[in-house]
Nucleic acid binder design. Structure first.
Lengths: 210, 210, 210, 210
DNA sequence: CATGAATGAGAATTCATTCAT
DNA sequence: CATGAATGAATTCTCATTCAT
């Protein structure tokens, strides 16, 4: 309608096709997360997801092939989200202790204690042992946490010791998260401080053992 | 058919009615555990369970009302199993440290790392946020661990500190278990030693802080 | 209700379980034949079949696994029917010529020209090139016709010549049947006489060539 | 955009509009034939056809209205192909016997034994009894064969006899084709010779009966 | 107590068709 | 002319539950 000369360049007035598709995919993934959080894994049907995303049921297969494809994309989305948060927090930390705390804050951060997120992770974990697709994503996530922690501890410890402590801290993080989520605790504050104290203690012991 | 008076006494030749029923219930619960472990929560149908138990599908509703009843009974069975193992190990422990170790050995014992058991717990946990029935059982289990640990630590610590340390140890136990199970590690040995070392460190710190 | 002593033996008053199951299977197969004849292969849905058999849709998978299983069973039923009719007619024929006529009468008999039957065969044949299951049944049927004809001709001809003539007669039978069915002709009478004349001619030629 | 007068004449540089459209239609029809031959009638979806023709799914409705329109056009294409081949072969034949042979060679020619073509005819025939559109095309084809044969036989026989023999030969042709196609035989050579011998015999009998 | 045939609601998936771009 | 995202009805298959035997 405008008679002004369109600026040449990569930017058209409307959303580009490919972007619109990405938006739709995101929309379906969000709807999936909400459905799992609200009604659980079993009750999360394609119809339920489509209803929440306000699209037709057929669209899921169009964009994700089948339900499993959508679920895997959803799990990947959750994992990627966590990873990018972790990366951002790690960049801002300037000491080993701070970097460890960054990992803790990411994994036990408020986001992760939202009912919306926590129950979804839990639901996926319940499927992991019987879904190679989920297992792959889950393993990548698990390795990334440990790797982040090892990297943070490297300046202080020999590789083997760094590995052991990283695994211990990772377990503590996951355990605290798990118990809080299963108990329905919404508050991550106390949990984060427990984890912090735990790490402080470990670092104190490290200082002594030197 | 015999009109002779039945000898009263400790044991009739045949199984008493009530015992036969218990055997059937146990048989169905075992089949359920195996089915969940083998094919996952979603693929565990009544037909699948009945096939494994070598009974007809109709029998489930007879003994457990409906599928959900069977599942809840199965979860209770798992929890009770763990509790009785814990009680037995606790009785034999004579020091606070040994009692803590008993909790660790129970929860990270070989049983719990059987694929058969671990994936089943995980599967149930995935349902906990959306099943009040499961949630109740799960909460009881979670409280029992913490209570066992608090009881073990009471001789050494003030109630509040005991509570905090108990929660920390419980989190460590669950975290180690979770990571090992999700990663498909079958070996509980290493995990138990990590937990032991962790507790040793905590006790060492306790000694210092006095 | 009767107080007479039951005759011991294999025959209970009511239908035996296994017989009832057979009746149900037969019922579903008949419904399938009618559905294909009436509305065609594509429009023959499980719901349509169940409606005609006056049972629920779930019963199909219970008895035949899936739709394909029912379709294969239906094709086998048609083929077996034809085979048993052929066998009966062959037994009553006392000369080579009569035996050939028996094959003709079976395959071009009134049954085969019922709309109910003809269109169903045709529908299956359309699927044969893409269904190994159907192809197997079809091949068995095709071989049986040729074998019947060869057997009838054996007293008159050397094996090689018998084979050739059998194939020719079989082709004539199938071709007549096909054209009549495709044209919607309900009348098998004319077709049978054409086939008969054709065979007479062939036999006449045989007589001359000797 | 050009305002120059288009040069009238035999051929413009670009394809004319109407030709380009014809090319597209042909392209879609060929893709349909290949799809039916490869995956069967039921699995031949519009998406499958579009994929093979390397166009979008929407194009089908544009050019053929709907799927059924495309299928009918495909069947007509097959029939027209056969008819034009037959016409060409007939023109070159100079005797009644040769003209009959031309019909045989056309209908049992190598083309018709290509898997690509044979299974497609068969698939359509399976639908004929339930599709008036297909039935019309099929009847036209069937009549044409018979008419060609009658025409070839007219110099030798009275109309009634010509009709009868034409039907017999047509049945033989279709029967041979059918059995060969259903059996998956790729070779038309043997089949053509069987048909030839058959006709020779018939002609010999004709000579005798005069 | 136990069986297993039968039901029927509900789930995933497919696919012809439409339509804004 | 052409695209392909979107729709939504139709279909198959699954499965917890019931109930006559």
């Amino acid at each position: 309608m405008s008679s002004l000369p369109r600026p040449t360049g990569p930017r058209p007035a409307r959303l580009r096709r490919v972007d619109a598709v990405d938006v739709r995919r995101r929309q379906l993934i969000e709807a999936t997360i909400e459905a799992i959080a609200d009604v659980g894994f079993n009750a999360t049907t394609i119809a339920e997801i489509a209803r929440r995303a306000d699209v037709s049921t057929g669209l899921v297969s169009f964009h994700f092939g089948d339900k499993d494809g959508l679920l895997e994309a959803t799990l990947r989305h959750l994992a990627r989200d966590l990873a990018s948060t972790a990366a951002a927090q790690m960049r801002q930390a300037s000491s080993p202790r701070a970097r460890v705390q960054a990992v803790i804050d990411t994994n036990l951060g408020p986001n992760q204690f939202e009912r919306r997120i926590g129950t979804v992770w839990l639901a996926f974990w319940g499927q992991v042992p019987h879904s190679p697709r989920f297992a792959r994503v889950q393993q990548a996530y698990q390795r990334r946490i440990a790797s982040n922690l090892r990297h943070a501890l490297r300046p202080l410890l020999a590789p083997k010791a760094a590995h052991a402590l990283a695994e211990t801290i990772a377990a503590m993080i996951d355990g605290l998260w798990l118990r809080a989520t299963l108990a329905g605790d919404a508050d991550g504050h106390e949990v984060r401080s427990v984890a912090g104290t735990f790490v402080d203690n470990q670092f104190m012991l490290l200082g002594q053992s030197r």
